[in-house]
Structure formats: C-alpha cells, structure tokens
C-alpha cells in the first residue's frame, strides 16, 4: 500500500481528496498539496481528476455509441450494434413511458445520462488503490512531486462538482423548456398561483420555490451521497488489508460482497438520475 506510515485517518482523507489545480495563496498556479490549500483556492480551482475521468468516460460512451450509429444497419446487427440497440430501446421505452410531449432532446439526453453516470459509477468497482497508486508513481517519478501530495479520485460521481454540474444542467433545461412552452408568465404563474390560488400567493411561492429548488438538489445529492458512501466503504475495507493476513482475507471477502452489491447500486443510481430527469422534463412540458 502506498500509504505506509500514514494513519488510517490520513489514508481515508487522502483517498477522499481531489487532485486540484488552482491558484495558491501566494499567487502562483499549481496543484494543491493538501485539503487546506484546496479550500484556500476557492471557486477558481479545477478538480482535474474528476473532470478528466468524467470527460474520458463521456468520450468512451460517445465513441462506442457513435461507432455503432455510423455502422447501423437495418439488416442483421453485429454485436456492438445489438448492445447499443438494446440500451437505446430500453431508454426509448422509459422515455415513452413517462414523457408525453414532443421533444427530440429528452431521449438522447436520457441515454447520455444513463450511460455516462453508469460509467462514472462503474469506476467505483476498481480497487480503490490501483489508479491512485499509478498516479502517485507517475507524479513522483515523472513530475517529481511528493507522493503524499498526489491526490487522485477516480470516481467522478463522488465529487459534488460533477453531480451538481449535471443536475444544474438538467435544471437549466427544465426552466428553459418551462418558459419556452408556457411563457415566462406561465412559468411564474405556476410558482405563484399554485396550489392555493391567488389568495395564498406567499405560501405558494415558498412551497413551489422549495419544490423547484429541491429538484436539482435531489438529483445531485442522491447520486453523490450514494456514491460517496459506497466509495468510503470501499476505502474502509481497503484499510483492513494492512491489518494482517486474517484481516486481509476477511477484507477481500467483504470487498467482493460489497462490489457485487454495488453493481446493483451503480446501475440503480444511473437509472434514477435518468428517470428523474425524464419526469422533470415532463413536468416542464406540462401545462396546468
């Protein structure tokens, strides 16, 4: 284990810290060496690992699906096309099931969300030390960094920036289509005059405002919370490997069990994110 000599707390903290690029307190730009430095960087800092992995996985998704789409034939489909068609039909069914309006964006968006979130969640199943170790070796020998300062989180969905980034994008589209379909008056009217009519306007505003804000929060926090908790449990299990042979074997069994259970969770979370997005888009398209 690369964290020899570290305490358990430090090990866990190390695993839960992003590789962040930003402006240091003294003014120069560079990677942060500790959680405190990341805090000091404030808003103008980039989680290089999260963003890198999420972009890479997005490209992986796009590469394979685009390849299948380019070679798509109405004849006998090959293996890749079969797989892609299977997923697309599943998404199409889900969208048709809960989205009644006509909008060509929703189904491709649902597909993107499902596959992308699934792939990002899937990184959780890699043993927690593998990629961070590679990154540490690379940082230490190639870039001459202190290995303890090379942070590397491989599961983008355990970073709230990523989940909030997607949830706010969905939120933005929700408001955009609300206003586009119902007009700005219709959108504001929905906020102000429901559910208690004109008399209960202040109460309406509070209720509807909260439920509006709750949408992106529930989207992103649910995914983030689930993945963060899952990742933390993997890290805790990984701690057992330093506790001798017996603990190591026990930890291995635990990790296997948790990983198998986690396959269900990562798929479910991707599916929930997608389904909620479809439902929210349906609400945005509905006239009251």
């Amino acid at each position: 284990m690369s964290s020899e000599g570290l305490t358990s707390t430090a090990y866990i903290k190390h695993h839960l810290t992003n590789l962040t690029y930003g402006q240091h307190a003294d003014g120069h730009w560079g990677f942060a060496h500790s959680a405190e430095e990341i805090k000091e960087m404030g808003f103008w800092a980039l989680q290089v690992d999260s963003l890198g992995w999420s972009t890479f996985l997005g490209l992986v998704f796009f590469y394979f699906f685009h390849k299948a789409a380019r070679q798509a034939t109405s004849g006998v489909p090959g293996g890749l096309q079969n797989f892609v068609e299977w997923i697309i039909e599943f998404i199409d069914d889900s969208v048709r099931g809960s989205f009644s309006a006509k909008n060509d964006l929703v189904a491709p968006m649902a597909l993107t969300i499902f596959c992308w979130v699934f792939l990002m969640n899937l990184m959780d199943l890699l043993p927690v030390d593998w990629l961070p170790w590679v990154a540490q070796q690379f940082g230490h020998y190639a870039l001459g960094m202190d290995p303890h300062h090379v942070y590397f989180k491989v599961v983008p969905t355990t970073d709230p920036n990523i989940t909030f980034g997607m949830a706010f994008a969905v939120f933005f589209l929700m408001i955009y289509y609300s206003i586009k379909i119902k007009g700005i008056g219709g959108f504001l009217g929905e906020l102000a005059f429901q559910p208690f009519g004109k008399v209960g306007m202040p109460v309406n505003l509070v209720l509807e405002g909260v439920s509006l804000i709750a949408k992106p929060l529930s989207l992103s926090l649910r995914l983030f919370g689930n993945m963060y908790a899952g990742e933390t449990i993997f890290i805790l299990i990984a701690l057992m490997y330093s506790g001798g042979l017996g603990m190591g074997i026990f930890g291995g069994i635990l990790q296997l069990g948790w990983a198998i259970f986690h396959i269900l969770i990562i798929t479910l979370q991707a599916f929930i994110f997608m389904t909620l997005t479809i439902v929210y888009m349906e609400m945005a398209h509905q006239e009251h």
Binding site: N18, N161, G165
Partner: peptide
Amino acid sequence: MNITVTLVAQSLSF
C-alpha cells in the same frame, strides 16, 4: 469537496 469551476466545466461537457 468544495464547489469550484469544475461544476461549470462539467455542465458544459454535459
């Protein structure tokens, strides 16, 4: 774990 410009970048790539 703080919110940074990564969020905006993620939204754009989304």
